[in-house]
Design a binder for these strands. Structure first.
Length: 128
DNA sequence: CATCTGACACTAT
DNA sequence: TATAGTGCCAGAT
């Protein structure tokens, strides 16, 4: 294998993780990314879902079971999940009952954002 | 080669 | 509870 010209194993792993989600259960972007080996690659999961098609994207929600998709897509996702047996609690999925836990571990979460005292804030400028 | 983007996550306020 | 802002990673332009 000299050179994996593939779109990185990370993306592939994320894809596989999503495919592992059984019907009737949901997972979060961060959970899928973490299961793929990227604790903070929530955004990568997003990329994979957008680029790769044929994946059960409707089984992937944001943290807390919150639906992140805009407008119709979000309602569509919610509809599909209900069709699979997933119940909703207001705008969020009942993660307590339907959150799919990936095997392995990867429970490393960050503790506190930078011990800097200056609350958060300094950069952030782009954006037209 | 440099820069921006994005269906997020998490901490502070 | 809601709002604001930052950090992370890899692909796209």
């Amino acid at each position: 294998m000299s050179k994996p010209k593939q779109p990185s194993q990370a993306s592939l792993r994320i894809r596989q993780a999503i495919l592992k989600i059984p019907r009737g259960q949901v997972s979060s972007y961060g959970a899928v990314a973490a299961a793929a080996g990227i604790p903070r690659g929530a955004r990568l999961a997003v990329r994979v879902l957008n680029q790769s098609h044929g994946l059960p994207w409707h089984r992937v929600v944001a943290a807390g079971g919150r639906i992140a998709l805009p407008g119709e897509h979000g309602l569509d996702q919610r509809f599909r999940l209900e069709m699979e047996g997933v119940k909703f609690s207001g705008k969020k999925v009942r993660m307590a009952e339907f959150e799919f836990k990936f095997p392995g571990k990867k429970t490393a979460k960050r503790k506190t954002t930078k011990p800097k005292k200056k609350s958060a804030g300094e950069k952030q400028k782009r954006r037209s």
